[in-house]
Computed example of a mutant assay.
Amino acid sequence: MTDSTPGPYGTQADAPATRATRRNMLFGAAAVSAGALLSACTSNQRGDASAGATQQQAGGADDRPGKKVTIGFAGPQADHGWLNAINQNARNRAKRYRDVTLDITEGSNDTAQQIGQIETLINKRVDVLVVLPADGKALTQVGLKAMRAGIPVVNLDRVFASPQAYRCWIGGDNYGMGLNAGRYIGEQLKDKPDAKVVELAGIDTLELTRERTRGFDDALKNYPNIRKVGRQAAEFTVESGQAKMAGLLQAHPSFDALWNHDDDQGVGAERAIDQAGRDGFLMVGGAGSRRVMETIKAGNSVLKATVLYPPTMSASAVDLARALAQGRGLPGTAELEIPASVTLYSAVVTKDNVDDYLPTGFN
């Protein structure tokens, strides 16, 4: 498997142009809708802006009726909880607007089939396209085709190999996800001598997994009392999570914290923990499923937090697409145009703030 092979979510490093230095610009609290917080920037590189994204119910986009627009939406097959939430968030957001018609494809993990679905939308002459590619590199040409046809493209999360293939990119921050997981664990263990942590990663051949690990390791460097003593790479599935977590538990009779990259594979990890009868450590999840948030709220598990990779990004992508088609800028910004790049913030959800984020949890 190569870096261009799609994972369940996350931006893959398909293009050197996407590896720009971040200039994080956060506006407002993380619990506010991403539509109100999209930061303006001046280049088409991924890392030029970031914004909080949690509650799409909170509003923030320009609700004033404008010209009627048709948004074509094409994503991969919804075979993972996060991807299903991506589709549902887009549908729900489009229903909010009387001036928006959403033409959504069935989705496919087969690149040729997804290209065909996007070409159908191009031939229908939709006003704007939102595309979460199954493989960013493989779908770059169809993005270029849409742009040449005068149909602006909002590239959602998995980035195309050329910035000319999209007008705007919006997606998550995998490095920031790992960084915030590491910071949370570090603060919980900062007073414990010789603290030990383990990591249950995702698919190691994916750049998104390596970015999450890099952020996690960088955060732990600030806590000299903490050592990462074990790491296993799973495959974003329940079965792999259970098998790999069982291996970590067997190899490490004691540790103080676990970071799991993905809440879906975390279902399996929790099964392995229960079967082994283990506790005495804290667990941090990744992505933000509703099940995990409810477990955190109940407070009766080793699972104490999860780091968001917000599927509400698709709702914000609909906001961006609507603004593009109607020639609008975004509320809260001085610019007349929408930004070229928006990076969402990976908030840490704990028992203290879980009620704020529960509405965004995916099944």
Rank of each mutant, 00 (worst) to 15 (best):
Q57N: 15
G35Y: 02
L282E: 04
W259S: 01
T21H: 14
G66L: 11
T343P: 06
E106P: 02
S301V: 07
A321D: 03
R278K: 13
K68T: 14
A195Q: 00
T213F: 12
N155S: 06
A334H: 15
G171T: 08
G332E: 05
P331T: 04
A40N: 12
G35D: 10
N109M: 00
K297M: 10
D99G: 11
V198E: 01
L258C: 02
P311Y: 00
A49V: 01
V142G: 07
G60N: 02
L320Q: 04
G215Y: 02
L200N: 10
E207N: 12
R93P: 06
Y345T: 01
P224R: 09
D191H: 13
A334S: 15
T312V: 13
G280F: 07
S39L: 03
N225E: 00
V197Q: 04
V302K: 09
L258H: 05
S43Q: 05
A138K: 05
N353R: 03
G136E: 03
A251W: 03
A149V: 08
K304D: 00
Y166K: 00
V342Y: 06
V302T: 13
N363G: 15
E239F: 01
M25H: 13
R158Y: 09
I296N: 02
Q188W: 05
R231F: 11
D135Y: 04
L248N: 08
A53R: 08
A272M: 09
R291G: 05
V128F: 06
Y309R: 07
M177W: 02
S108A: 11
P152T: 03
A40E: 10
D99K: 08
A233F: 15
G28C: 11
T2M: 14
D127W: 02
I86G: 07
D127N: 14
Y97Q: 12
L248F: 03
G143L: 07
Q242Y: 07
A305L: 04
P8F: 09
T205V: 12
A195M: 04
R322N: 03
A20M: 11
F73V: 05
Q164M: 11
K244M: 15
W82L: 12
G268N: 12
D194V: 08
Q77W: 07
A29M: 12
D99S: 02
M1K: 06
K145F: 03
A146V: 08
R183N: 12
D63T: 14
M245C: 10
Q113G: 07
N84Q: 14
L249P: 12
I122T: 00
